[in-house]
């Protein structure tokens, strides 16, 4: 199987381990990724807060570049915010030809044209629908049995576009987790908001949302995420929130492909556990 690959800015910097572990896992399940040449930022939530048109043009530039590549018509995107922004353009231009013309009049500055014939796929969508689960089962041989991990989906891979999972009660990670021999932690916080950029601009609000998720994860051995923003929010303030709440809320937080990679025999170094901000010690002592 072949996909085009859009890593996005976070995967080049603060979430490098998400990029590395995604590539390691995809190679292990025999998927080829071709990075979109000269890709640029999708606009994140910044563009839509400043300019409507810019919030379409920035992702559209990447779709136009993807259309120029021949290896696949599907783009695999690990970051949920990038996924939503690229998907938003894919969906909007199906019906809104005025918007498409407007986008193209801007892209003409770089001699690019958007036609609308690529499909944007989230990493979790590809893992749960395209990959043969038996490959993961056979390779991992129940290596992680005894561990209970909490699947955390966040918002933007589930909503507003309901492509591959129930946006209120998602379960697509369960089967992947069970394929490693581990148990999926039962909780109702998997699709709740982590506060997104409020943790930076309105920490008094953002930290409350993070605290709620960490408290609900009590009893799990780790939390798994599929979004750099969620990962950063859930990892970076555990000590501060624990101190404020007066309870120990520290827990390892891993990107899903890091966890699956470990289960499939990759080393801690292969999936770069050293780059995580939370302490994966407990998880490692337990099994890995």
């Amino acid at each position: 199987m072949k996909y085009l690959y859009y890593p996005g800015c976070s995967l080049e910097g603060t979430s490098a381990e998400y990029d590395i572990s995604t590539k390691v896992l995809m190679e292990a399940v025999d998927v080829q990724l071709s990075e979109i040449e000269d890709w640029t930022c999708c606009g994140a939530t910044a563009a839509e807060s400043q300019s409507h048109l810019l919030s379409y043009v920035l992702p559209a530039r990447n779709l136009a570049l993807a259309e120029k590549m021949n290896s696949s018509n599907q783009i695999l995107v690990p970051c949920s915010a990038c996924y939503l922004n690229l998907k938003k353009v894919e969906e909007a231009i199906k019906n809104d030809k005025d918007l498409l013309r407007k986008i193209n009049s801007v892209l003409a500055q770089e001699d690019l044209v958007l036609k609308g014939d690529v499909i944007v796929r989230h990493l979790l969508d590809v893992l749960s629908n395209d990959i043969d689960i038996e490959t993961i089962k056979e390779t991992s041989q129940n290596k992680l049995s005894g561990l209970t991990v909490a699947p955390y989906y966040g918002c933007q891979c589930l909503r507003p576009f309901t492509i591959f999972d129930d946006p209120e009660d998602p379960h697509s990670m369960d089967e992947l987790i069970r394929a490693t021999g581990a148990q999926s932690f039962e909780w109702d916080m998997g699709a709740q908001c982590c506060g997104a950029s409020n943790t930076s601009t309105k920490p008094e609000a953002g930290m409350v949302l993070v605290g709620r998720i960490l408290k609900s994860a009590k009893g799990a051995d780790a939390i798994l995420t599929v979004c750099p923003m969620c990962q950063m929010n859930l990892e970076s303030s555990q000590k501060k929130i624990s101190h404020k709440e007066g309870i120990d809320l520290e827990i390892p937080v891993l990107f899903l492909p890091q966890f699956l990679g470990l289960a499939m025999g990759k080393t801690q170094n292969d999936v770069r556990l050293d780059l995580n901000l939370s302490n994966p010690g407990r998880l490692i002592k337990a099994r890995v």
Partner: peptide
């Protein structure tokens, strides 16, 4: 304060 969780839209 909106953190773009899209629950209201959904």
């Amino acid at each position: 304060m909106c953190s773009s969780c899209y629950y209201c839209t959904l």
